[in-house]
């Protein structure tokens, strides 16, 4: 193998430092969440305990962590399913130009770059003025979609830009209906990307603050609950909560990576029978 240039070691060190910058703080609070009962928000550790985790599971003096977690979980799943379905449909539509497609595309980009506080303020006003009233499952749901759909649709663009239409043509030539082509050819081929869209949909919703803040109604989502806690909670219980939600998010990412890997393995194993048939 070719000898590595000096720049490799310099850049490699830079990369390592960047990783430390990226993960260092998270690791720090993970350690501090095991702080002893007498300990505070900073080092030194005064013993090691599960005290702060236990406190999370006890009757809460502050807020409603588990209620807000359940709401965030439900909302995340609602946003996830909607994002996947709507993105796939729009992705299929965008495969060919249609009157209005350019405008719609720029609207999607607009939804992405528009200041979040405008989405929050606007939807809040809309639900207030029409008398519907804000609720996490209606107004916050819509607000989250304006954030997750652009990501989903951009991914669908990336997928369909690389999509080989020969497979669909082959299926159609064999007499498959439009629905059969979609269900048996297109969908299995784009499935790994859809897992990615689902992950975007869920986590972006699950962690969203700026677009939720004025539209969640009377009950908080988990990030809003944490946001509220930052002003009045000054114990490592905040770190314990942070550690738990981070572990939760990381296990989701792990699950997604695992399932995509399995899908690709299976595809590599069973995918093509080219050259294996009778000649």
């Amino acid at each position: 193998m070719e000898k590595r240039p000096a720049s490799f070691y310099i850049l490699g060190t830079f990369f390592a430092l960047f990783m430390l910058f990226l993960y260092g703080p998270t690791i720090t609070i993970a350690i501090l969440s095991f702080q002893g009962a007498e300990g505070g928000l900073t080092f030194p550790m005064r013993g090691v305990s599960l005290n702060w985790f236990r406190e999370l599971f006890m009757e809460q003096a502050v807020g409603d962590i588990w209620g807000s977690f359940r709401r965030s979980l439900t909302l995340g799943l609602m946003v996830m399913v909607t994002t996947v379905v709507v993105s796939v449909m729009a992705g299929l539509a965008f495969r060919r130009r249609f009157p209005g497609s350019t405008v719609l595309f720029y609207l999607v980009i607009g939804a992405l770059v528009i200041p979040s506080i405008l989405v929050s303020l606007g939807i809040g006003l809309l639900f207030d003025r029409t008398g519907i009233g804000s609720h996490w499952a209606t107004s916050a749901f819509g607000a989250h979609l304006t954030w997750t759909l652009p990501f989903g649709i951009l991914i669908m663009f990336a997928v369909f830009n690389r999509f080989n239409p020969a497979y669909e043509e082959a299926a159609r030539d064999q007499g498959a209906s439009t629905w059969q082509v979609f269900a048996h050819v297109v969908l299995p081929l784009i499935a790994p990307a859809l897992v990615g869209v689902a992950l975007f949909g869920f986590t972006l919703s699950y962690d969203e603050i700026a677009r939720t803040i004025l539209v969640s109604g009377s009950r908080n989502t988990l990030p809003l609950e944490i946001w509220g806690m930052t002003t009045n909670v000054t114990s490592p219980v905040l770190y314990a909560l942070g550690t738990l939600t981070t572990v939760f998010s990381l296990s989701l990412v792990g699950l997604v990576i695992l399932s995509v890997t399995i899908m690709q393995r299976r595809r590599a194993r069973n995918g093509s029978d080219a050259g294996k048939g009778m000649v």
């Binding site: 703080p25 998270t26 720090t28 992950l199 944490i226 942070g242 981070t246 998010s249």
Partner: peptide, 12 residues
């Protein structure tokens, strides 16, 4: 880290 909560990353 993109998949984890921004507010928690700030608290960190």
């Amino acid at each position: 880290p993109f998949w984890t909560s921004n507010i928690i990353r700030m608290i960190s």
